[in-house]
């Protein structure tokens, strides 16, 4: 079973991740592991790199354990946070490039204007809602998104693989994301 009813399953994943962060709860971590480990392994095996998907999955889950205290539920669902750790390890392993990221503690960082409470209510934290929105995308848009997220393909690589002009790939990504934002309600549209 993959679809989450109204984000309930993910809500419990978020609770479990918070428990690991709070008190290094090993039972909570095992439940997270049983759910995410096979998914992360499937994600890693799609990148096409030479590193072992099993090894990258284990690195990801060890990082989840170590960093759990830094997880902030107001910034997103557990699956979003775990995805970002897996993604960064995959970039490291497959592309040997750095992934530049902003630092919220940097003096030059421009902070959010909205109070944290509003952010905490953001609808994109509801993983079930995001999943349902994904299912409603037209096939050609969903294909382009999946090739980006799962196969680590640049826009030009996707254009070459699908035999499409680069501009078409960009516009499908924009249309897909526009529709997702409207459905998810991450911002007024």
């Amino acid at each position: 079973m993959t679809a989450l009813p109204d984000g309930q399953a993910d809500k419990s994943m978020t609770e479990l991740l918070l428990a690991v962060g709070r008190s290094q709860d090993i039972d909570a971590f095992e439940t997270l592991f049983r759910y995410y480990a096979p998914r992360i392994k499937a994600y890693m095996s799609r990148g096409g790199g030479s590193a072992s998907a099993e090894e990258l999955m284990q690195e990801t889950m060890v990082a989840v354990w170590k960093k759990a205290a830094l997880y902030d539920a107001s910034k997103g669902a557990a699956s979003t946070w775990i995805f970002s750790i897996a993604r960064n390890l995959r970039i490291d392993a497959y592309r040997r490039e750095r992934r530049p990221e902003f630092d919220p503690n940097d003096p030059a960082f421009v902070p959010d204007e909205a109070p944290a409470a509003d952010v905490a209510m953001a609808a994109f934290q509801d993983a079930g809602r995001v999943q349902r929105a994904l299912l409603s995308l037209p096939a050609d848009q969903a294909t382009v998104l999946k090739m980006s997220y799962f196969e680590d393909q640049s826009q030009s690589a996707i254009a070459a693989a699908l035999d499409l002009p680069l501009g078409t790939v960009k516009s499908r990504m924009r249309l897909a994301f526009d529709k997702l934002r409207t459905l998810i309600g991450g911002e007024p549209s």
């Binding site: 592991f33 096979p38 499937a42 994600y43 669902a77 699956s79 993983a127 994904l134 911002e187």
Partner: peptide, 23 residues
């Protein structure tokens, strides 16, 4: 950054959606 958070959430939902064998 708010739009980027939605794009990250799409990644999270895609991870949830992957067919997975039991661990």
């Amino acid at each position: 950054r708010r739009r980027a958070a939605v794009a990250d959430a799409v990644g999270g939902a895609m991870l949830d959606d992957l067919d997975a064998a039991p661990s």
